[in-house]
Nucleic acid binder design. Structure first.
Lengths: 338, 338
DNA sequence: CTGAAAGCGCTTACAG
DNA sequence: CTGAAAGCGCTTACAG
């Protein structure tokens, strides 16, 4: 605070002014502020941090081996976190982890935490049980996780936000059944991820509940992205021996890929097959046919996660926090009554 | 480096090991490294920075008043910068600037620089002449700019990467003219931005060169995003008095919006109108009809910009740097010979 | 080749 | 209410 000593006070006082401490008379405050404004002075962040202040940075870790760029949802996550953090005067350091098992990637992530570059981290797209995340939590770092359900793990520095897949899947079945669909297939997401697995499990549960039988060849593997939906649909169509009347896609991106494949086979949607998915991401209304899908408010979810984490960084926390969000069916043009 | 003193050497030596200085015998090096590995030690970044090292962070500033989330290109920019920086062991602090004129936003951006949170900044989506950027450059900060052309400004800390709009527009006209289109309209981007303006200027130039006359009611304003394309196309269609046979959209997003509007008017593309655009972003191949567009390798552009900036941060620079990239026509299904 | 010391820019008890 | 001093975790001349 050398320069601002021009105000005729000590650096201690300047520091007190900057940090808005109460025991500074208005007169002194104003005098110092004037000099600060005038000289365009901003306190060096490294100095502050070293002296014990938080660095005011959140780490955002996007994990996924697919091409991030193509995934619209990812973008939505990133901007929501950045904007929410920004509203509290925090910054965001974003990292992309292509492979959470790669030693170099692991080291880089740890480095960010241990170097104290960030006050807390947020993980998106990780497997439900990810050793790297568990290690970080064990080390005591504050970690926000989108999409996780780990029994018995309830450390106060683990902050989880989930989408209520069970309720969402119920709504889907209610709708599909009402449209008289009985032959239903599923294009799965990544089963290592919490929602990936539960969407499938709930699919099985619901089929049972509605007294429908699961046809194994209508259950296709996938990875939440467009490409995997395209491939899954292709393998389904190649078989040609009986198609379901309705398909549930674990994500809109998967549905997009499926649409592309069906297009190539000259299938009409929803006339030949109905398709419904989860997410309602930003392109889903624009595609042809517009997707009927479960709207999940990811922007709001990430906003609350981010805000919660910031408040924990600043005020501490002593209990496990888990947030759960519902979803709404958005009916557009990809499903038909039969 | 307290803890690592367990290695039985001074902190000076540990520091020398960490920074890989040459004057350390292999034996000492190994001994220290062993302790470091063992204790999971990473040097505190604030300490390093305060002692004179660079912070190893780049600032990425995305300016745009539209909803970032919807813009697929933005995502591509962000990931390219993050991944390129990551390959050189740099991190990226991303900020979204909704309004570059807003005093609070301006202050926040300046703060990031003056606080020394970052070693350099990269701006994407700013107006060609943006006072905030000019001020930062005048202050001596290293600034990378995507899309700018300012006569006479050639400071060594201004690093510019541009897309060669002139050549791109020539290719478009060559193609459209070859398809016998003579009645050509344009859906403009943001004219405050360099490519926005030049796309329009080159449109006018080319019309003249091909001896075609510009119909003012076929020149529509826009802002590079989907929504503006939708609106522009709507106002064009509402008039109903004579439509062009071909339309050039200043971006794929604009073309998407236009497609949506044309769809509502039950126009068939490319049978009723041909449409061609710039960008070739990641959804353009998937839309119906697949877009014929100028492919610009933004990922590579941002990669080179990022790498160049990092090398300047590390090694300095004494001359103005400007990079220019070309584009290639990708013919898909949205244009037709008439 | 390596250690002791100074210094980077801040904040915060501690006195007064 | 405010200043002098110590300390945060590093790096880097400076000696030796």
């Amino acid at each position: 605070v050398e320069i601002a000593k021009l105000a005729g006070v000590s650096r201690s006082t300047v520091s007190r002014v900057i940090n808005n401490y109460p025991n500074v008379p208005k007169k002194t405050h104003d005098k110092v502020m004037k000099v600060i404004e005038e000289y365009n002075y901003f306190p060096n962040i490294s100095g502050r941090t070293l002296a014990g202040k938080s660095v005011h940075v959140l780490g955002l870790f996007i994990v996924g081996s697919f091409n991030i760029s193509v995934d619209i949802l990812t973008n939505q996550f990133i901007s929501s976190v950045i904007e929410s953090a920004s509203s509290r005067n925090y910054h965001v350091l974003t990292s992309i982890i292509r492979n959470a098992k790669d030693p170099t990637s692991i080291k880089n992530v740890k480095e960010v935490f241990f170097q104290k570059r960030i006050d807390a981290g947020i993980f998106v797209g990780a497997a439900n049980h990810e050793p790297l995340i568990e290690e970080l939590i064990a080390e005591g770092f504050t970690i926000g996780i989108f999409d996780q359900e780990l029994k018995g793990r309830s450390e106060p520095n683990r902050i989880v936000v989930n989408y209520d897949t069970t309720e969402g899947t119920e709504k889907i079945f209610h709708y599909l059944y009402g449209l008289n669909h009985r032959k239903i297939g599923i294009l799965n997401g990544d089963l290592k991820r919490f929602t990936g697995l539960t969407k499938y499990q709930e699919f099985v549960n619901m089929m049972e509940k509605y007294d429908l039988s699961v046809n194994p060849s209508w259950v296709l593997p996938g990875d939440f992205n467009e490409q995997s939906g395209y491939q899954a649909m292709q393998t389904l169509l190649k078989k040609e021996k009986g198609l379901p009347t309705a398909i549930i896609a674990a994500s809109d991106s998967i549905a997009f890929g499926a649409l592309r494949a069906m297009n190539e086979y000259a299938l009409k949607i929803p006339d030949d097959i109905s398709i419904i998915s989860y997410d309602d991401h930003l392109m889903s209304a624009f595609v042809k046919p517009a997707l009927t899908t479960m709207h999940v408010d990811y922007t709001e979810m990430m906003r609350q996660l981010t805000l919660k984490i910031i408040s924990i960084v600043e005020e501490g926390n002593d209990q496990f926090i888990k947030m759960m969000f519902g979803s709404e069916l958005v009916i557009r043009d990809s499903c038909k009554k039969i």
